[in-house]
Design a protein around this nucleic acid. Structure first.
Lengths: 334, 334
DNA sequence: GTATAGAATGTAAGCGGTTACATTTTTTCT
DNA sequence: AGAAAAAATGTAACCGCTTACATTCTATAC
């Protein structure tokens, strides 16, 4: 591969001048610019991004950490991030954290040592304190799905509480009185928020909640199945189930069906996330929309604006959930 | 961030020695190694990957191109590639080609200028000739979902023809005689292969195929819906439908239902790819498994072996499809 | 004890760019 | 026309590391 040196020789100018035309910086007459461009053309020259990074202390790459690369959720986020960043000539380096504290930290270290100009993280297991520490470091950090007050301008998150509130309220409005709640891992703040929204909706409607009908899963399908078994064995009747995410809802529905229940006539179910396959389900799942694509896009724009100094249209930090009613919910009938 | 220079000063050794302990290369006494490690520890030193790359002409990053980052298919591939590569300390740089020739080429250029040590490409629109040209270049290229004879050791692909053959055969064995085929874009070799498998199965069974019942889509759900409309309007009866992928099958099924047909009693449908949500569908879709995760893993291993010289267990290039029969297919009844 | 091979360590030249500063050329103004 | 200011270009140091080669040290053999 040709280097800048060969280009400068062929064009009969100095290294600095070539660099100037490459970066479109400084002053260069039209004539010499043309000479240089011709030389670059002729040699098929492409700047070596690595060398540029080393010299300029800018890698033009941003590291993105997601819990998982497969699955219905994070690909969408990744997609909008890549889209936005790629259009600005920036690279995306990915890493998966696998929802494990050690692996998440490792991945972050990994990305940082790669001299990423910024990090966009959707972490799962790592603590707020760790992230704050990280944010105090040299590399700018942007967080998706977290809300840490001290770094509000770097956090993009959904109002989880409100989302569950809406979902629960919808079930109540359909006439359901005895509701069960299938929570996410309750040590996680989003799972807590979602549960809190459920409780608030119940309270606002003047309904009491039978704690027997609270059960916890790990956001995966299988745990939804197991949760349904526990709920059914608990001995308390319920006509509505609010789930902390769609995957668990799928598992729960499947288990309920196996036990001979019909959805939604015997049981109304709402999910959370509006993962794309919910509309392929039968019945299509009622759920709460989580605009992860927009959130990714906003995070990317923040990077472009705050790190690369590119002007951007307004950036949104806080997102409102939206209820999507489909066929897995129906009016209560005794 | 501390540099190798500061480490060498603190440890009282030369740059070269520090480099040696970092890379575990050359000879270093246990004593000096310990001194250096202590110094690195004390300074919180982390090697600058960019500088390493520039000096060693190894970026330790591999570029991966997928058609789309979202959707049910490529995340899985990406996931296994990242997994494998990450374990070996290599970075994954991603780019989406959006199934458009220009964008695919741009993305490839983009990755190449980043000095990727290797490229793993799942292209859609670019020609075999272009890829061959690319493969002749400096950066090693590995192809997923393509089979180009001249570079067989860099191609990982599924026997599409055989997959369709199996799917079609299954329908025939269930007693169906009048079959429709919903093809992918027929200018693409995989779509051709799948169609060919269908035809071969029909021929082998001594069945004639009514060309009226061939229709083409673009692998997306909406096109499946439209295709079903055309098929139904064609006026030729059929009791089985073989689809070139799952997404189109979803659309087709949905349209058929809207027209009052029941699946599978009125129409048996088989998909292709075994995308993960097919089992959430109702009825769960019968399909052909496409082991894209394993293929990604194999491509990653090839990179590790051929580019980074790491010994690897056997690598597989050609993959056999496997039929997955679920509930969208049933025995024919007149 | 000395010569000598082999092991450990050090020296310094890049890798391919960027950029502060110096120098030369061109333009402007009196 | 000549001086001063502005614009264009060039020079060279530096980014943080690797690595070929040179040098020094250590252990072995006689």
């Amino acid at each position: 591969m040709a280097t800048i040196y060969e280009v400068s020789k062929l064009a009969g100018v100095s290294l600095a001048t070539v660099s100037r035309v490459i970066n479109n910086s400084g002053k260069v007459t039209q004539a010499t610019r043309a000479k240089v461009q011709a030389a670059m053309q002729q040699l098929g020259y492409r700047p070596n991004a690595i060398a540029q990074s080393l010299a300029s202390a800018r890698s033009n790459s941003v590291g993105v950490l997601v819990p998982e690369l497969h699955g219905p959720f994070f690909g969408i986020m990744l997609s909008s991030i890549e889209d936005e960043l790629r259009a600005a000539g920036k690279h995306v380096i990915i890493s998966a954290g696998h929802s494990d504290e050690t692996r998440e930290k490792e991945s972050i270290e990994f990305l940082a040592s790669r001299q990423c100009d910024a990090l966009i993280l959707h972490t799962f297991a790592v603590s707020n304190e760790y992230l704050l520490d990280l944010a105090r470091g040299a590399v700018p950090v942007f967080l998706i799905g977290r809300d840490i007050a001290d770094i509000a301008q770097q956090c993009f998150y959904l109002d989880n509480e409100q989302g569950s509130y809406l979902a629960t309220q919808a079930l109540i409005e359909l006439g359901h009185r005895k509701l069960a709640y299938l929570a996410g891992p309750l040590w996680k703040s989003d799972a807590q928020g979602r549960y809190a929204g459920f409780r608030r909706a119940m309270a606002d409607a003047g309904l009491s909640f039978d704690e027997q009908l609270l059960t916890e899963g790990n956001y995966q399908e299988a745990s939804g199945r197991e949760a349904m078994v526990r709920l059914l064995n608990a001995g308390s009747a319920f006509s509505g189930l609010v789930c902390a995410n769609d995957e668990m809802a799928v598992g729960a529905i499947d288990e309920a069906r196996q036990r001979g229940m019909a959805i939604p006539s015997d049981l109304s179910v709402v999910g959370f996330d509006n993962v794309f396959f919910t509309r392929y389900m039968h019945p299509a799942l009622s759920t709460v929309n989580y605009p992860v694509d927009v959130m990714g896009r906003m995070a990317a724009r923040s990077v472009l604006r705050d790190v690369y100094g590119q002007p951007q249209s307004e950036v949104q930090y806080r997102f409102e959930p939206r209820l999507v009613m489909r066929a897995s919910t129906a009016a209560f009938r005794a």
